[in-house]
């Protein structure tokens, strides 16, 4: 069996095949694959016996359920008011400069995707950033370079 198919089967076995298990299953696929491809969505629909259009409709509603290919590390910079006031643009520039990508893009080696996101809930320690599930707060351009350098060193 191909790996995505068996991943989806395992997730459905774990969470169940009812409609209310759809989000956990999709989250599980995103955790592993970083995004939901058309193939994954059709496969989820088949495995859980839900119309594929419904799976697609649900997936595209949630900003953390990516439907476009994404890198291993998804960087999300908070752009809501306090982070905007405390210099999130400087962070974006520093990251764009370092990774040579624009916001919304993925590096050619598929390691980093850079995104902006709405309030992360760290306004008292702005600006804030998520890399996958890990939170970084009071980030400065210097700090972000350091953090990314560490990620880049990993698994080379």
């Amino acid at each position: 069996m191909n790996p995505i198919k068996s991943l989806i089967k395992d997730l459905a076995d774990l969470h169940g095949r009812h409609r209310e298990n759809l989000l956990p299953v999709m989250q599980g696929v995103v955790q592993k694959e970083k995004f939901l491809s058309e193939y994954s969505m059709i496969e989820i629909a088949r495995e859980m016996d839900i119309p594929a259009a419904e799976v697609f409709g649900t997936a595209t509603f949630y900003s953390f359920l990516e439907t476009k290919p994404a890198g291993k590390y998804i960087i999300r910079i908070c752009k809501t008011i306090t982070c905007a006031m405390k210099g999130k643009n400087q962070l974006l520039f520093a990251i764009q400069d370092m990774l040579k990508i624009k916001t919304g893009e993925t590096t050619p080696d598929k390691r980093f995707t850079l995104l902006e996101t709405n309030c992360l809930g760290w306004c008292h320690k702005a600006p804030a950033m998520l890399i996958n599930d890990d939170v970084y707060t009071e980030v400065t351009p210097e700090k972000v370079r350091e953090i990314l350098t560490n990620y880049m060193k990993e698994n080379i």
Binding site: H18, L23, Q27, T58, S63, F64, N118
Partner: peptide
């Protein structure tokens, strides 16, 4: 625990329930 997936509107109580039922929030 039921994990959300990044949607502000799901803080609205009935949208939250839709989301828990596996639908758009």
């Amino acid at each position: 625990i039921f994990m959300g997936s990044g949607a502000y509107i799901c803080g609205e109580e009935t949208a939250l329930m839709e989301s828990m039922e596996g639908r758009r929030g």
